[in-house]
Design a protein around this nucleic acid. Structure first.
Lengths: 244, 244
DNA sequence: CGAGCCCTTGAAACTCGTCAATGATCGTGG
DNA sequence: CCACGATCATTGACGAGTTTCAAGGGCTCG
């Protein structure tokens, strides 16, 4: 199976063998990072672009009052911070959640990729889909109540993990309840309560970091989930679809 | 004074006369659009990229329950939907709020801009700052209470309008209270109440679509506003700074 | 075995939403 | 020019959703 990055980008746009070769050249020298470790910290002058190849990472930020908001989950194949290419300072932090393997890509390598029209478009796709996900999170937190929000996040993770071949009807979810609470903007106590609602409704089970979605249709119905914002292409619906 | 687009992009990266010429060539044939008119609707197959030159527009989406979330304000110089370049379907809608002048840019013109390295980087900057704003909105809605959220939005609009020369310590705000409520994820009734709190605290006045920020320092303090996410460059702090 | 962390539960307080009614503003047509 | 309806802003009362505080339980790891 191809790596998560190529697999994801090919969901958006067809890549030539040469394009793939160039992508694969970039992801040499992955390094292992323990869980709960910052890859970049707010205020840093960024150096290289980080790319998650294995594991779970997140973007987050603390408010002045010391509350944390998680703004994105970074799954295998996701670029953490294209900002590096053009912006002078990190406006948020990035941290691993589970142990990860990460590739550090120097700014110049990214600029080289952007020279090639097809790869440039592929990176635009990835960035625009990231923005679409962020918009949906805003809708989620702004307009839905806690139970729906949680269900919505779980639906999204299922579909996104399927794209990179890491889920069928269940997946490994190495988050704490506090992480999820900081994702959907509720207290950890309340998160615990709505989580139990989902279990009581027999929509999910979750133990030992493994989440099982017992009825994806009902969970999507429950949360008002519409997958169009993920812009899933050829491979999305079927975890085993071939992409070339 | 240069147009809002060039002015904004020059805040990120220095443009050659030739770059500016190419940008100016693109924004010929602006058209006038009445207030409260969709420029693009969720589900559409997008055609051209829209660029706001004058007026106030927004991104929004309705949930399955019929609640609206405004996900961005589009001010002069802002691209509405780079999605067009690569994505096949609008995952949200775009509408004017006040009467606007808008430029429609065909997909191919954008692709031509992306060929030029400097302009490509400038567009990446604009897209990455848009994403940064979106992240801050998520923090805002997820972690702050209603009064702070409202104050935060008003601070952001002040700074963003200054970038394009449309604000000093006050600006025209053609929004209804319902629009603001749908922005920060509260009911219109509650928005009205926290708005009155800001007035009572003597932080703002707002009538006849004109907002006056009476004490920006206290308003920023009140809302926990930190402008770093706007990545304002050379011209940001001073509305009259020269950029070349 | 104890320390620490996370999850769970209950009770009280608070923020915010809903419902309903009133008032203000504005454009339109008589 | 005024009356009318429509839209938006305002206010009060009540209820729902959520937070906070506090305490206890379960698990892992040294």
């Amino acid at each position: 199976m191809e790596n998560a990055l190529v697999r994801k980008l090919e969901g958006y746009i067809s890549l030539s063998p040469d394009d793939k070769r160039q992508l694969n050249a970039i992801i040499r020298n992955p390094r292992h990072v323990p869980a709960h470790t910052d890859l970049a910290t707010e205020g840093d002058k960024p150096t290289s672009v980080h790319l998650v190849m294995e594991g779970f990472a997140c973007r987050y930020k603390f408010t002045a009052e010391g509350n944390r908001q998680i703004m994105a989950y970074l799954l295998p194949g996701d670029f953490c911070d294209m900002h590096v290419v053009v912006l002078k300072q990190m406006d948020h932090s990035i941290a691993t959640i589970s142990p990860c393997t990460v590739v550090d890509i120097p700014r110049d390598h990214i600029l080289a990729l952007l020279q090639k029209p097809t790869l440039s478009l592929a990176l635009w796709c990835a960035a625009l889909v990231d923005a679409a996900v962020l918009r949906e999170w805003l809708v989620n937190v702004g307009q839905r109540r806690a139970g729906q929000r949680l269900a919505h996040v779980l639906c999204e993770l299922l579909l996104r993990l399927r794209i990179v071949g890491l889920a069928d009807n269940s997946y490994d979810l190495p988050l704490s309840q506090k992480d999820l609470a900081d994702t959907i903007g509720v207290s950890n106590v309340h998160l615990n309560r709505v989580l139990q609602d989902l279990r009581r409704e027999d929509l999910i089970t979750w133990k030992a970091e493994h989440l099982v979605i017992k009825d994806i249709d009902r969970l999507m119905e429950y949360s008002g989930f519409n997958p169009n914002y993920l812009h899933i292409g050829r491979q999305g619906a079927n975890p085993d679809a071939r992409t070339d």
